[in-house]
Computed example of a mutant assay.
Amino acid sequence: MTQRTLAEINAKIQAKQAVVWTVAELKVRVKEWGTARCTRTVDVITTGTFEPMEASGAMLNLGQTDPPIKLQRCWLDGVPAYTGFGAVDVVIGASQICEEEGTERGGGHVIAALIAGDTVTLKALGQSTDCYPRTTLETRIRKDTINQFYLYNPRNLYQNFIVGVNGGDRTLYTYLGPLLPQLGNAVYACTGALSPLLNDPDLRCVGIGTKVFLGGGVGYIAWEGTQHFPLQKRLPNRVPIGPAATVALIGDAQQMQSRWVRGCFFKHYGSSLYLGVGVPFPVLDEQVITACAVQDKDIVVPVMDFAIPRRVRPSFGLVSYAQLKSGRITINGTQVRTAPLASIAWSMEVAEILKSWIEQGEFTLTEPVAPLPTERVFLAQDGLE
């Protein structure tokens, strides 16, 4: 049985001798060669996704003014930012919307604009103190006129998700986009068998400290993500049947590329952030290959009716990603058109770029400093009785 260490793989990467496949390439070759030969051959498998990730945000340090200011309220291009971390530290969330009426713009657009090198207006009110006497600030900032500018995303890379449909009689505007009445469409967000964590169902290859492709630059898994739910029900192949594990990601936004970080707006819902994320898996043993060989037909996802406004919505059952990617699914005898929010082509390109970085010796792998929890329960919030 083939066994490798991360140190051995990194030595091959640094010598530009590592064999690297994207997960799409692996899925083809494992059918031809089998898992044993693939395990002997490949050193690293790269995965990628490009999809909206609204649980993302950015931390900015503006630098101090003269006279000094302690920010109390702040707006970036009209989008409220949070100021409660220090005198001139600002946090902006991707899903925070602009306060200017009729503006389809939010925090995701501000983050994307800064990464692109654009200028953003800043307006702020200060709390007057003896050490921070200034009370107002209006200026314009760019990423090269501020100190720290990094993404901190508390929930990315959902390990599976849901399919949204609408069994009601009017169009619903949701975080999946418009859902047409009377089962007029079905929308899904996950890339299925290409999705990073669906190829590592038991989180053997990733952990706190894992280095990743984040927005065209380098990032790291900082912690478990919010709503991390590894105890989700699973198929015999260990793939979850609904939303399961998540990760929190962090990375230097100064090094990111505007192509892979894009603001977006869902009509009558709000703003979000399209983000490219790629995760490399070291092939330490055959189990890694077995997990990454999973196919779209072997991964199922629940179809949820958004016409019922409850935390636990009625389900029309489970469908496979092979069915979703065919363009139509059948619900109660009705053919329903399907559409992905994620870009399959761009997700594959993320994996290809990460593959090239590793092949060129520019990106080595990191040993997690701690595992992600595998026993975390999911708690609901119903308020005080």
Results as ranks from 00 to 15, higher is better:
111 I>W: 07
302 P>E: 08
94 A>K: 03
284 L>F: 00
101 E>G: 04
116 A>Y: 05
86 G>V: 06
241 I>F: 08
18 A>K: 02
187 V>N: 09
301 V>S: 12
349 E>T: 10
204 R>H: 12
294 V>I: 13
332 N>A: 15
291 A>R: 06
197 L>N: 09
248 A>K: 02
329 I>Y: 07
92 I>W: 02
312 V>K: 15
26 L>I: 06
68 P>W: 02
253 A>R: 00
256 M>E: 06
368 P>M: 11
212 V>E: 04
380 A>H: 14
257 Q>V: 08
261 V>I: 13
296 D>R: 00
36 A>W: 07
330 T>H: 09
285 D>K: 01
309 P>G: 10
10 N>R: 12
75 W>K: 07
133 P>R: 05
368 P>R: 08
169 D>V: 08
249 L>M: 13
42 V>L: 06
21 W>R: 00
81 A>Q: 07
373 P>I: 03
157 L>A: 09
132 Y>E: 05
176 L>F: 15
115 I>E: 07
159 Q>F: 10
136 T>V: 10
179 L>P: 04
123 K>A: 13
71 L>N: 04
25 E>S: 14
181 P>N: 11
136 T>D: 11
343 S>N: 10
213 F>E: 03
322 A>Y: 00
127 Q>F: 12
331 I>Y: 03
43 D>V: 08
32 E>F: 01
214 L>Q: 04
220 Y>I: 05
161 F>A: 15
377 V>W: 10
22 T>R: 13
284 L>A: 02
80 P>L: 09
99 E>K: 09
83 T>E: 07
254 Q>T: 11
366 T>R: 02
334 T>M: 14
97 I>R: 13
